[in-house]
Amino acid sequence: MLDTAMDVMPVSRPMSVTRVSVWSGRRQLHAEIRVPKTCSPDMPPLVALHGISRDAAGVAGAFSEPCASKGQVLITPLFTRENWSHFQRIGGYRPDRALLALLALVQQMGLARTDKVEMFGYSGGAQLAHRFAMLYPQRVAALHLAAAGWYCLPDLTQPFPMGLGPSETNLKTNIPALAHNQLRHFLALKLRVYVGAEDHHRDEALRKEPCIDDVQGRHRLARARYYCKAVRAAADARGVTADLSLCELPGCVHSFSDCAAAGLTGLVCSD
């Protein structure tokens, strides 16, 4: 089921802003689409996903200027707590389908071509971003993951959702098998991983189960480093040339605004 609502705000800024919403099953996803006055038609839009604080407005504000300068359409979804309490997971919930519906709507409205997008996510948004890319790598022109709490590793020895091995619980949708079929394509994606150089605290939001601590590390910095190694190893094992880099943002803890102030948004948009 797909339904839409649209509200075009007055244009008095470098980017015109259109608000849309789509339904995916019983859940609604809201988003703002910012179209620069001078838009590069062949440039994939940037989909920027918020973290568990759900500060889509903050994400939009941080990316507006660099996207406007670049001529890139900016799409900032908002997964509300009421509809998407665990939006970063693909399984029982299907935020991937909501994102696909959103991309289809943006194209249908003529706001941007969305057959390929650049995808950015911060924290929980980074978790959703890489899981989306594992299922639909052909839709992703570049994947930017910032400070994910933990990762779904391209590793068949790790049970899903930590890796792509069989899940220890019954799954309604066999996500690990589906992602495994796309793995070679996923490993060839342009992948940029970012994390605060001081993001080594075990805060309340961080998952601390042994199954993650023991494999990926005890904090986001260690986990980002481990993820990059795991992606590179998986790519090498399959003869795929990885296009991957890790950027540790100096002086940054786990804070989107700190990371943005340290140049994260500029790095994403300049790459």
Partner: peptide
Amino acid sequence: LDPAYANTLAARTLM
């Protein structure tokens, strides 16, 4: 009908 399943069939077809 599920885009994730359809996409995996497409991936296997392209492979």
